[in-house]
Design a protein around this nucleic acid. Structure first.
Lengths: 336, 336
DNA sequence: CTGTTAGCGCTTTCAA
DNA sequence: TTGAAAGCGCTAACAG
């Protein structure tokens, strides 16, 4: 190993007694090479332990067989699922995937864009931090194609994949209201500064107001089990009849609410129906399995990748598209 | 954007009225460039929206500022945590990270090694699938430095980071036995074909046999909540006194066991003490918070990265090392 | 079907 | 302190 570089295409060519062009052809268009020559080259490649250096090709072609993926986090099953599906599909298609975790820090995100641009990644999938469009510009200047997740891209910038959280909110509400003649629907929601929380609320509201059912809103700063537990005390005091109907905008809250209600002596689903959002593992493993609005996480990833590859394969007459994925209600015991 | 390539170092040089060498120096050793010249170059870089192309440097230098990371999965909080810590640290150090998910398929893993080698990654961190050493060879032939996680590397191949599961098994057993004069310790374990399960068992055994306490072993094929639940019925029938002592080799099993015992009318921790392994989120969020053996997941990642960067920064007189990290018992309600 | 050749963008001597 | 020039390994266009 000391010192000496790996053999390049030239050394292979010499060993096989052919020219470099032929070696290149053997690798990329083997069908145009005479079988006997091909054999000889393949043998030389084998013998020399030749590993093609993508840097050469990248330089020549101006783009790397590499995709960037920028997400806010990895822990957090939502992003983990997206990442996993993208990584799997990218690998299968022969692309390397540069994973970047932005940790909700715009500076970090920008630094990642810079990296991706410098590597001349052919494309990138980004879950952008804020609406700030400027940072993405760095990627565009080097011609890296872009697909956004969780934020609709305008036509010029690229394709995007989003979830219809309005619909998610409405199917949750509908399911709960179908349970009977409720006098009120409780919504346990996170901060409205989060777009997803706003959308889920709107969806819920569209259902309750259409039916003239009052919506009782409970807002928590942190969408955690603890907060859900705390809120449950308030809910339990509501005099307006059982079963109580509760929609929580994530599964942590829902889990906490259920525990809190049980601590107050109510039974789920007998005295209260609870629906969560996200369909995390938590929903499955809870002691009262949770009815929850499932987001097609893996599909988000794979659709994003498809859009990107589509654009890369046919950049000339590609039309940017915005895919909207629909969440689905998964019914379990907490609200059958 | 149509057609034309991005400006290179040469165009910057022309714009600033200097030579390409000077531009390169401005980027890498600004201190040796006269301030006025430096200014001029910086201005040109700005004006042209110049983004350096790493392919050029990679070609010239034979290695890319890129690290590979190969893990079996991302969903699975253990790998997610390792990945997150590596991604974060790598980003901070200015390295791109090529994420590869092998999905327990050796063929896929090999393909990933090939990719990483072709990209001339400077180094790679790998959680190898099997003990098969040959596949890694591909990486070595191109000089990619290697750090293994979860498997001890022999001195020639590189550094490694492993967890001392023997110790993990022993502290779990010790904690349980400290609870009182038990007549038996129950071990709910996964298949012994999994090295980690073997180690945890050995650790447990070392404690019980030292104290002449019989170890009752229950083996499940799948380490799931359901299996834990199922096994609990058997446990509940054991006549040898309460509180029963149960060590489960992962948190899923422990969660299932607790539910199963409760379904049989036993109370945790009053009638049975249960310890899990992994300290997943599940342990925290369970209705009876779980005492569990915590693995230093994030630290595994950061240590692996440190070892790798250390080697990259000083490859000449680097000595490969094997870091063994100790798990710690996190005490919660299931076994106080 | 195969060989030749001109760069792609960058770093790094070596001279000036 | 700066400039000139030699490649790094590869692809693709062209000529044979």
């Amino acid at each position: 190993m000391p010192g000496e570089r790996n053999p390049g295409i030239a050394r292979v060519a010499a060993a096989a007694g052919v020219s470099v062009g032929t070696v290149s052809n053997v690798m990329h268009r083997p069908e145009i090479v005479a079988p006997s020559t091909r054999e000889r080259v393949l043998k030389a490649i084998e013998a020399l332990d030749f590993v093609p250096n993508t840097a050469g090709a990248t330089l020549r072609q101006g783009a790397n067989r590499l995709l960037g993926l920028v997400v806010p986090q990895i822990l957090n099953p939502f992003y983990a699922a997206i990442t996993e599906s993208i990584a799997t599909a990218a690998g299968r298609r022969g692309y390397a995937l540069a994973l970047c975790v932005s940790h909700d820090d715009p500076e970090v995100e920008l630094a990642h864009f810079e990296m991706i641009a410098q590597q001349r990644a052919a494309g990138a999938i980004v879950v952008p931090l804020s609406a700030n469009e400027d940072r993405l510009h760095r990627l565009r200047t080097v011609g890296t194609r872009l697909v956004l997740i969780d934020r609709t891209a305008d036509e010029r910038e690229g394709c995007s994949v989003v979830i219809d959280d309005f619909h998610g909110g409405s199917i949750a509400a509908e399911h709960l209201l179908a349970a009977g003649s409720a006098q009120v629907l409780h919504l346990v929601n996170g901060p409205l500064s989060i777009p997803q929380c706003r959308e889920r609320r709107e969806g819920t509201l569209s259902v309750t107001s259409a039916r003239d059912i009052p919506l009782e809103e409970h807002t928590v700063a942190e969408m955690s089990i603890e907060e859900g537990f705390r809120i449950a005390k308030h809910l339990a005091g509501d005099p307006r009849g059982l079963p109580m109907l509760v929609f929580c905008t994530n599964d942590q809250l829902a889990t906490g609410v259920i525990r809190g209600l049980e601590a107050e002596g109510l039974r789920v689903p007998d005295d209260a129906l609870v629906v969560g959002y996200g369909d995390l593992e938590l929903a499955t493993t809870a002691s009262v399995p949770l009815t929850s609005v499932a987001q097609p996480k893996a599909e988000m990833g794979s659709r994003a990748l498809s859009l990107l590859l589509e654009e890369l394969d046919d950049s000339s007459n590609h039309q940017h598209r915005s895919v909207v994925l629909q969440p689905k209600l998964v019914i379990r015991e907490s609200a059958p």
